[in-house]
Simulated scan of single mutants.
Amino acid sequence: MKRFFLAIAAVAALVACSGKTGIEKELVGAYDAKMEVVLPDSTDAAAAEMAEAVVTQMKVEMDFKSDGKVTMVMNGQQHGGTWEMQADSSLVIVDPSGTLNFKVTKTDDGFKLTGDEMSFALTPKK
């Protein structure tokens, strides 16, 4: 019986140590996401205003699972894929449409994902 409890303790310790760590562990969860589009400097003012108006009206939610799956809902349409953190706080999201790369920064109220074409401010869902 004593061996049984020692075996359970060993398995529990192994499971606890084998999961995600650091910012990767903190990122796991569901978020409301405010999207920002990064436009080239050459974009004219009217086009930039129109893009900003469209993006601010979008409802975006992201859910990062501990098993490496991610779900993103944009205006009611669900998209799924996988995610992983690189050593330098770079987040890689892969979905059927391609690969997205973001730099992850922890903020006072969540996270900031900064990419070349778009960025997201993530606020944990309550």
Rank of each mutant, 00 (worst) to 15 (best):
E84L: 13
V104Y: 03
K65P: 01
A7N: 06
Q57V: 02
K125I: 11
I23A: 09
D95H: 13
P96T: 01
V15R: 14
G110A: 00
T82W: 06
M118V: 11
R3H: 14
G98F: 01
A48Y: 01
G98K: 00
M35K: 05
K103A: 12
L6F: 11
Q78G: 10
V54N: 06
E84F: 15
T82F: 08
V28K: 00
E84W: 13
K125G: 07
M1T: 14
F102Q: 02
S119K: 04
D109F: 07
E117T: 15
M1Q: 15
K34V: 14
V38F: 08
D32H: 11
I8H: 12
V73N: 07
V37N: 04
V92R: 05
V15W: 10
E61P: 02
S90A: 15
E117M: 15
A87L: 14
F5K: 12
D108N: 10
T114Q: 07
D67M: 03
T43C: 03
E24V: 07
D41F: 14
L91V: 09
A53N: 10
N75T: 08
Q86I: 13
E49M: 07
A47I: 05
L6W: 15
A87K: 11
M58R: 06
A48N: 03
L122I: 03
V15K: 09
R3T: 11
